[in-house]
Simulated scan of single mutants.
Amino acid sequence: MTYVVTDNCIKCKYTDCVEVCPVDCFYEGENMLVINPDECIDCGVCEPECPADAIRPDTEPGLEKWIELNTEYSEKWPNITIKKDPLPEAAEFDGQAGKLGKYFSSEPGSGD
């Protein structure tokens, strides 16, 4: 089992999860984070820290596309290990459904 970042992180990018991760397995895109499933040790400390409830265990049904997305982009985006401010529009986009097709950016973030 591993954890994955899902739809609700897009356009929010809260980084509270990054701060508690003991193995630094988060990677930063322009408008969301992902978890490298090969680095994640399944400790679960990140899940309750996400204000947007965007981190889920990969054992939940229907997360196949998110497992693939996290795997792919954790190999392309820079590692992030320190907490940053969320995106300015985070409160507006928190909880919106269907953000992947509308707002996802494959561009990398700045990393640490």
Rank of each mutant, 00 (worst) to 15 (best):
E92C: 01
T81P: 02
A91V: 09
A90M: 10
C46L: 08
V23D: 13
W66Y: 15
G109A: 03
A54W: 05
C50Y: 06
M32N: 02
V20F: 09
N79Q: 15
K65F: 10
I67F: 09
E92F: 09
L100M: 13
C40H: 01
A97N: 15
E68F: 00
K76S: 11
I10G: 03
E64F: 03
R56M: 11
A97L: 12
W66Q: 13
A54E: 03
K102H: 00
Y27S: 05
D112Q: 12
E68N: 01
P48Y: 05
L69R: 00
M1S: 10
S106C: 07
Y103E: 09
Y73M: 15
I80W: 00
N79R: 15
E60K: 07
T71P: 01
I35R: 08
W66E: 15
Y73D: 04
Y14S: 14
C17I: 13
G101D: 13
E30T: 12
C25W: 05
D94V: 07
A97I: 10
G111V: 05
V20R: 12
P22W: 08
D42E: 15
F104I: 12
I82V: 15
E89Q: 13
V20A: 04
T71N: 08
G101P: 04
E89F: 03
T81C: 04
E68Q: 11
K84N: 09
G101C: 03
A91K: 15
N36M: 07
E89S: 11
L100I: 15
K13W: 00
T59E: 15
C25A: 15
V34E: 06
P51V: 09
C12Y: 05
P78Y: 05
T81M: 07
D24R: 11
I35G: 04
D42K: 09
P22A: 14
E89D: 13
E75T: 13
K65E: 14
D42Y: 10
E72P: 08
K11A: 02
L100P: 02
Y73Q: 01
P37F: 04
E60M: 14
A52Y: 02
D7K: 08
Y14R: 11
P51M: 14
D24A: 13
I41A: 02
C12K: 00
E39C: 03
P57F: 03
G111Q: 11
